[in-house]
Design a protein around this nucleic acid. Sequence first.
RNA 1: GUGCUAGUAGCUCAGCUGGAUAGAGCAACGGACUUCUAAUCCGUAGGUCGGGGGUUCGAAUCCCUUCUGGCACACCA
Length: 560
Amino acid sequence: MGIIINLEKKIKENWRKGISLGQEKSLLSLSNIPEFTLEVPKDKKNGDYATNIAMLLSKIEKKNPRELAIILVELYKEVDDTNNIEKIEIAGPGFINMYLSDKYLGEIVSEVLIQKNDYGHNKLLSDEKINLEFVSANPTGLLHMGNARGAAIGDTLANVLKVLGAEVTKEYYINDAGNQIENFGKSLDVRFREALGEKDIEFPENGYHGADILETVKGYIKKNGDGLIRVSEEERVAELIKYSLSEKLDHIKTYLGKFGLVYDVWYRESTIHNSGAIKETMDTLEAKGLLYENEGAVWLKTTSMGEDKDEVMIRNNGLPTYFAADIAYHKNKYDRGFNKLINIWGADHHGHVARMKRAMEAIGYSAEGLEVILMQLVRLYKNGEVLRMSKRTGTYVTLEELLDEVGKDAARYFFVMRNPDSHLDFDMDLAKSESADNPVYYIQYAYARISSILRNLDKPVEEFLDGKEPMYTLVIEKDLALKIGELEKVLIDAGIRREPYRIATYALELATLFHQFYSSCRVLNEEEEVKKNRLKLIVATKYTLENILGILGVSAPERM
RNA sequence: GUGCUAGUAGCUCAGCUGGAUAGAGCAACGGACUUCUAAUCCGUAGGUCGGGGGUUCGAAUCCCUUCUGGCACACCA
């Protein structure tokens, strides 16, 4: 594992060794080696790697950084035993630029050909048992664009974390209890009676206006008849809720499935309510003296934990709040053995984050183990106007419609492409009319082109992939090989920072380099040695693309 | 009002936790298919990194201040 990672570690280590040697030889006077950077310069002219170490040391050594750099480079050359660095230059204010050897780039490609579809995998996070909860949309309606964004980000993140060796459980929290369900039930009841001809029924104030629930009750009547009209309202509402939630959940599962997403656990909020978990949590808080009663409700002293105000746990009607249930739910996750809880929430929940962390501390669980990725909401444009998405008013574009119009691959890529922090403007008209401009096709096209070359070979490709190390001489070949080598670094970055968009960006960069290579280099009909070398390069590219597209949940078509 | 978050090319966004001349993609303009797929490639143009201070060899990046969006501040979830 870790071609580039190991190289970078080695280079940094060698600089430290060199400095130590300088200390021994009394060329340098410092006692501690400062934290220096090893970075990939933006401009290729400045080498494959650059370090700022001479500039950092110049302060300590009280010497001109360029003079110091000369000494450091000599020391480095003395300790370097790898042969991976071909040339070292001193530039600008005192940067030390390093150039990788051609031989090394060939090694990268050979390594990928050995690891194949495991290339990029490692064991970095093998100690982590992660519960990743996302989407968790209320089952009172259909999935909308915001949910779709969460689905794409969450699933991709789960895939990356698994590649890094973590054990990941994808979880969907079903809000099947509480006030909103009551409202939902009342709305269903009204629609049910209306469907059977009753007129002028008052619609509940916070009811659900979506047209879909009308369909639901009609479906119920078709299937089960109108017998419910004759039972008590309570019984009728309960039955309608049960029927409806089950129908909605099936629908949600179906469409998430079509989106390429399969959950490991579907966890019901009602389980938390019915299992005594909330009471247990309240007892813990009570024992710590963090609860008090006021105006008939039970409050949590969140002010003593640094929050602005206290929060209600148990309402004066005796029912627990969402917050109370959520504390119990997160406690439950820890109790199930997870050491990391990652939630993906809409940005409108950000006020909830700090409170939850404090609450975890209060019941004696880790606040640090709870991470929340906040996602800005999706703003939807249609006919040049912003559509306000709301379940209650029933104006939203569903995941179903999205899949029909742009397809799974484009939709998934589009949602993952951007940092969750930024608002996502989704123009439906653009998505429909210009879906071919979507970057995902660009990436897939690179894959299809490679497949096409391999199809045109006269012999099986394996016969060209001997163990001999390839050597690349053209800039574009080297760039492509180096980019392939970056994969593992990108995956680690994306996983550790919980930023899956980095993978989407990388995929695009890799595809760009491939297309450039494709238009300036031929593979078939080249002299035998060149042909072999290039075949190795494109097969390594193919594996890399397959791996990334797999993580993104985007298909890799052989033909387009 | 308080808190969170953002402000970079006409548009949508990167910028790797302080580095060298701030980068892509769309859109605009000009080129490239008798050769492995033109869903591609090459080139041109486009910038006071919201404004103002500060920290230092060096700032889009860190600190302060200010302006402008978005969101949150329920006995809703």
